[in-house]
Each structure stands twice: as structure tokens, then as C-alpha cells.
């Protein structure tokens, strides 16, 4: 079991180094789309709980941690993606909605918002 998990994780790292997320968008387009997801009330509405150092971030909440040092905190971007997908995996009583598991956002939107926050 351990071996399998390890090999899956290694594959993950290799994939991360070798490719960008599967998407037809360029990185710039993806970041712009991700920002719209982050700020949009009927989309991700991430801003309602997470501060972010973006001049367009108006009245952010602070229920969750700020979007800060993301690349340092998540050397593997895939792990960050998994956290967005379902934060209750690591903290069952987390207030954060499982954006992927509950299909609140599409998988494409999750890729985009991860690209956006990963810059901070």
C-alpha cells in the first residue's frame, strides 16, 4: 500500500514538473479566469474567507488562512489542488466547502483558481 501511494505521489511530482494542468487555456488566461472564480460570489467566492494581496480584493473575510507564500506552503501544486477540492479530508470540521467533491466548481474552475492563488 505504501509503495503504491509513494509511486502515485512520485508520478504526481513528475507530472507537475513536466506539464501544466490539463487545460486549453494559456497560463495567463487561466490566472484571469481563476481570479474571476476567486472573487465571484456565485462562483468560488474564496474572498469571503481568504485575504489575498490583490488590489482588486475588496473586503475579504478571514475565516480561513490568507493566500500567502503558497508556493512555499505547497511545494506540490497538486496538494494545494486537493485542499481546494476537499478541505474536510484533513480537517473534518473545516468550514471550507468541498469545492470539488461537492461539484460547486467545475474541475476546470478549480485548475484556474489554483493557478491564480499559486502566484501569491
Amino acid at each position: 500500500m505504501r509503495k503504491l501511494t509513494t509511486s502515485m505521489c512520485v508520478t504526481g511530482l513528475v507530472a507537475l514538473l513536466a506539464t501544466s494542468p490539463a487545460s486549453a487555456l494559456t497560463v495567463e488566461e487561466s490566472i484571469a479566469e481563476g481570479k474571476a472564480v476567486y472573487m465571484g460570489k456565485s462562483r468560488g467566492n474564496c474572498i469571503s474567507c481568504h485575504q489575498i494581496n490583490d488590489p482588486d480584493a475588496n473586503l475579504p473575510g478571514n475565516q480561513g488562512p490568507p493566500m500567502f507564500a503558497m508556493a512555499q506552503r505547497f511545494p506540490d501544486k497538486r496538494i494545494l489542488r486537493a485542499q481546494v477540492w476537499d478541505a474536510t479530508k484533513n480537517n473534518p470540521i473545516s468550514i471550507m466547502p468541498p469545492l470539488g467533491k461537492h461539484w460547486i466548481l467545475s474541475e476546470e474552475d478549480i485548475d484556474a483558481v489554483v493557478e491564480y492563488i499559486y502566484q501569491f
Binding site: R2, L13, P65, F74, I79, A82, A87
Partner: peptide, 21 residues
């Protein structure tokens, strides 16, 4: 196994300080 340990999530750690017993 080492790799698994190195792969990690920060958010949950910070959030976990809010966890009540």
C-alpha cells in the same frame, strides 16, 4: 514513505487550531 511525509498541506494545520476537542 519519506515522500509522503514531505508532501503536505498547510491550510489544514492552520485551520486545525480552531478545532475543538
Amino acid at each position: 514513505m519519506k515522500i509522503i511525509k514531505n508532501l503536505a498541506l498547510g491550510v489544514s494545520f492552520i485551520m486545525s487550531t480552531q478545532l475543538v476537542s
